[in-house]
């Protein structure tokens, strides 16, 4: 096991940040901790990294107990949302910092830093100060800095949170490729479900200081354990007694078994997609259709149709 955190409990004042959490991260995997802000995911990551202490519970890294070991002796790489660049040191010295602390020979440091700067495409910026880099470049420097010490695990706390959406997408792909090359056990915290679904091998959904569900991105998307997970990973609408994804609803022009009669209240075209809103008894579901589907059904506002969950749709009972 790459990381194993057992029975972690953490309280800030009256606020329970983590309530008896158990986290298992297999070696070599890229795992996302996903959840709303304030849900405890960053606190969990910081406890694994040794930046915060749990009130109770144990942490193992590579099967060695790390509980109570200070951060500087855990050999984890940590990447922060706001880069945490050493502003007075050049890009080169930033990346070399951990190696200098470990008193590695000069030429080894030079070789290793050179390698890493090439890996993150910053070899031309070695002599710049962090303030002369863009946000995306700074975060790549921070990643190279964390990787320089060959950490047992790499922990990233909302690594792309401070970047604009275009750079964020680029770095996301790039992190995935980097991980495929290096295979270092990696955990990253995010509140962006798209990011988590796209990049991670496995996903841990955390809310209110508890783990809601663990699994592969597809498992969790297709079979959410509860309505929180379902709602957090994608859009949800209520159809009769079911919670169902709006693209998982069939629109029928005639009554058939299990369907509910519904009146179209509003049709909105959003680019390629058509969003249809309905009045169906005590629920007001909406359905996501392609333009082709909508045209084929000849939908108009005010007309009456029948709705039912698609055959292999995942549904939850609404309360």
């Amino acid at each position: 096991m790459g990381i194993s955190a057992q029975h972690i409990y953490k309280q800030f004042g009256d606020f329970v940040a983590l309530d008896d959490v158990n986290l298992e991260v297999p070696s070599g995997q890229l795992t996302a901790l996903l959840g709303p802000s304030g849900g405890g995911k960053s606190t969990l990551l910081r406890i694994v990294g040794g930046l915060d202490d749990a009130d109770s519970g144990t942490v193992f890294i590579d099967d060695v107990e790390a509980t109570g070991v200070p951060a500087q002796r855990r050999n984890v790489g940590f990447v922060f949302q706001h880069y945490a660049a050493f502003k007075h040191l050049s890009v080169y010295r930033n990346v070399a910092f951990g190696l200098e602390i470990r008193k590695r020979p000069k030429d080894e440091i030079r070789r290793r830093v050179q390698e890493l700067l090439e890996l993150v495409h910053l070899e031309k910026f070695a002599d710049r100060l962090p303030s002369q880099l863009s946000g995306g470049q700074r975060q790549r420097m921070a990643l190279a800095r964390a990787l320089a010490v060959e950490p047992k695990v790499l922990l990233l706390d909302e690594p792309f949170g401070a970047l604009d959406s275009k750079v964020r997408k680029e770095l996301r792909d790039w992190l995935r490729r980097l991980h495929d090359e290096m295979h270092v056990t990696t955990v990253f915290v995010t509140h962006d479900q798209e990011e988590a679904l796209e990049v991670s091998d496995s996903l841990v959904v955390i809310n209110n200081g508890r783990i809601e569900q663990v699994g592969s991105p597809n498992e969790i998307y297709d079979h959410p354990a509860n309505d929180f997970v379902m709602g957090f990973l994608g859009p949800v609408t209520r159809l009769g007694a079911h919670l169902v994804r709006p693209h998982d609803i069939e629109v029928l022009t005639s009554d058939s078994s299990g369907s509910i009669q519904a009146k179209i209240t509003r049709l909105t075209r959003i680019g390629f997609e058509v969003r249809a809103e309905f009045e169906a008894g005590d629920s007001q579901p909406w359905v996501q259709l392609t333009r082709g589907q909508a045209d084929g059904l000849d939908l108009v506002e005010g007309s009456v149709v029948w709705l039912r969950p698609a055959r292999d749709a995942s549904t939850l009972a609404a309360d």
């Binding site: 990294g49 930046l51 500087q72 790489g77 922060f80 910092f97 602390i101």
Partner: peptide, 12 residues
């Protein structure tokens, strides 16, 4: 976080 980064890189 700058101090934490230094600590995680092994600095006392």
């Amino acid at each position: 976080d700058v101090e934490e980064a230094a600590a995680s890189l092994g600095a006392s």
